[in-house]
Amino acid sequence: MPRYFFHTQNGDRIRDDQGEDLPNVDAAREEAVTVLGEILRYRSAGFWDTGVFSVIVTDAEGVTVVSVTAKASQEAPQGWALADADE
C-alpha cells in the first residue's frame, strides 16, 4: 500500500515524516480534506491571523500528488454573487 505524507503550511512549513499508508490517491485526497478541516477546527479564530492554510500531500518519492488550501478574507471571491430571490 502506498505511503502518503501530509505536510502543512501556514507561514511555517511543518513536514510530515511519518506519513500514512492509504490505498490510492483518492484516499489521500479525502484525508487531505479531513486534515485541513481538523486543523481549521483546532485553530478556530486563530485562522484569521495566518489567512491561508495548506495541506500538501506527497508520495514516498516526495512528488506532490494533491494540495488543498483554505483562505480567509474579508473580500468575496471574484465573480461571486447571491442569486436574486426573484430569478
Rank of each mutant, 00 (worst) to 15 (best):
M1I: 05
Y4K: 08
Y4Q: 05
Y4N: 05
F6H: 00
F6E: 00
T8C: 02
T8E: 12
N10V: 03
N10Y: 06
G11M: 01
G11T: 04
Q18W: 11
G19P: 12
G19C: 13
E20G: 04
E20L: 14
D21N: 07
L22V: 10
L22K: 09
N24W: 05
V25D: 05
D26E: 12
A27M: 04
A27P: 07
E30M: 04
A32R: 01
V33C: 02
V33P: 03
T34R: 14
T34C: 08
L36A: 05
L36K: 14
G37Q: 14
E38C: 14
I39V: 10
I39L: 13
L40H: 02
L40T: 10
R43E: 15
S44P: 02
A45G: 11
A45D: 15
A45N: 15
G46K: 13
F47R: 07
F47A: 15
W48Q: 15
D49V: 09
T50R: 09
T50W: 06
G51D: 07
G51I: 11
V52S: 14
S54E: 13
V55G: 01
V57H: 03
V57N: 10
G62N: 07
V63F: 10
V65G: 02
V65K: 03
V66L: 08
S73W: 04
Q74N: 05
P77T: 00
G79W: 06
W80K: 09
W80Y: 12
W80M: 14
A81R: 13
A81N: 13
L82G: 08
L82H: 12
L82R: 11
A83E: 09
D84S: 04
A85S: 07
E87C: 00
E87S: 00
